[in-house]
Design a protein around this nucleic acid. Structure first.
Lengths: 255, 255
DNA sequence: CAGTGGTCTAGACCACACT
DNA sequence: GTGTGGTCTAGACCACTGA
């Protein structure tokens, strides 16, 4: 059973009593994640059907199903009944601001727009290096932008990206884009943002930020620091955002 | 098959093509949630084994399993391999502050303490009535307290609770308690908090709050509004908290 | 209609906890 | 050892999509 012909990766170890027991479906999941990382299945595309995968990996359909279940729960894949299972993508307009928890107190937001301000290569400072697992001084792409909801500026973001991956980013190319940043990163650099951690604090606006967000100096703002991870829990972005929360709030669900 | 002897609730409709299709396992889940609401299985206690439940509901063990899977994902139940499946409880010290996302920037917190300040019956104002699905003016229990981490005050909370349920709360009884509020609510009133929604903003401290939290007046604070729900998505608490975020931050994971 | 994911079953066996 | 949850299988059938 551990013989399989078409699988691109190493053989499967059927579960056996051991200190490092890993069920079959989780091994299948790892193989599938590898396929995603390797780009075998591209964002937005359908992956093979459950029964095809079952044959390919030499396990039952139910086992493949359980692997896909976990991946769907982690938003790596989305299932669409009757159609197939697809690789998640930030390219879908509905998923453009998947990680943005800011929302208006009352009305609906029709239009969100990202306004790039600057983009340059620079050495990572200590906080950035720590978050991105770099040595201090290694290069990162530093990007500043404003975010507006219906032409009202509500967020100022400073982002730091691994130069290894995003070194080719330029302000000009960003200004010509219609899409969200993560969607651009996915299409241009093949990097999918999978999950993120945020740390929130209340701070007073300094002069520059007050001007950008059109609020009074020393006005309270929400400071949101974010580390964003791609496949394999690799951090690729560190971000610091200042949110104006007079007409908006950060929404969170606790379970 | 839809005949069963011991089930306390109505008969099960096996899935049939219909506009309101609900799979069997979800019907089982609803029956089990009803059993929880009715108090048939108390917090902390083990529920019957999967095979017993399968017999009771007249379905296969796999179907019961899927129902339990969903309930475990919603933190209604916890599975413990080899031991059984248990009703979740806020009485477990590790779950005392399950919904509190505030954490220190650096060191570990050893001791969290709730310091009740006041507790009285009063009419609900508009915001509270809206959140709790009350008519304006209906009674709620208004409770104020401070929260300290290692004897440093970091949060001031104002809470409003359905008087129907929590009317018997008194300041004296709270002051004699060692446990977290939700743990008290669970033991004294049989109400389990299941999930919550939070809305966060940055605000300036007013004089009273600045004094309580020992920060400067107009200092930026994080304002956290929370609606807390029990079984059946019934809101039972509305809460407004002011968090001092100089040495602490609100931590959130995005998936 | 064929093909996909979704549900349900019955049975075998494994991992873990307790006695 | 016994009883619990956890994994895996094979097969039947249902629900949804699109040609």
């Amino acid at each position: 059973m551990s013989t399989d012909s078409s699988s691109p990766v190493t053989h499967i170890v059927r579960p056996v009593a051991s200190p490092t027991f890993s069920p079959l479906y989780r091994q299948i999941k790892e193989l599938m994640v590898s396929a995603l990382r390797a780009g075998e299945w591209a964002p937005g595309m359908a992956i093979p059907s459950e029964s095809e995968l079952a044959v390919r990996f030499g396990v039952s359909q139910g086992t493949v199903r359980k692997a896909i279940d976990e991946m769907a729960a982690e938003h790596l894949l989305v299932r669409r009944q009757g159609k197939g299972t697809f690789v998640e993508s930030h390219n879908n307009p509905r998923a453009y601001y998947r990680f943005l928890r800011l929302q208006p107190n009352d009305r609906k937001v029709r239009q969100k727009r990202s306004i790039p301000l600057s983009c340059k290569l620079q050495p990572a400072d200590r906080a950035v290096a720590l978050a991105l697992h770099l040595a201090p001084g290694e290069s990162v792409v530093a990007l500043e932008r404003l975010l507006s909801f219906d032409d009202e500026v509500v967020v100022f973001d400073q982002m730091f990206l691994l130069a290894d991956i995003f070194g080719e980013l330029t302000l000009e190319s960003l200004q010509q884009e219609e899409h969200s940043l993560y969607s651009i990163f996915e299409r241009r650099f093949g990097v999918r943002m999978i999950r993120a951690e945020e740390r929130l604090r209340a701070v007073a606006a300094d002069r520059r930020i007050a001007e950008l967000l059109k609020v009074g100096e020393t006005e309270p703002l929400m400071l949101v620091e974010r580390i964003t991870y791609t496949y394999g829990d690799q951090p690729v972005e560190w971000r610091r955002g200042f949110y104006a929360t007079d007409r908006y709030h950060y929404y969170n669900e606790l379970n």
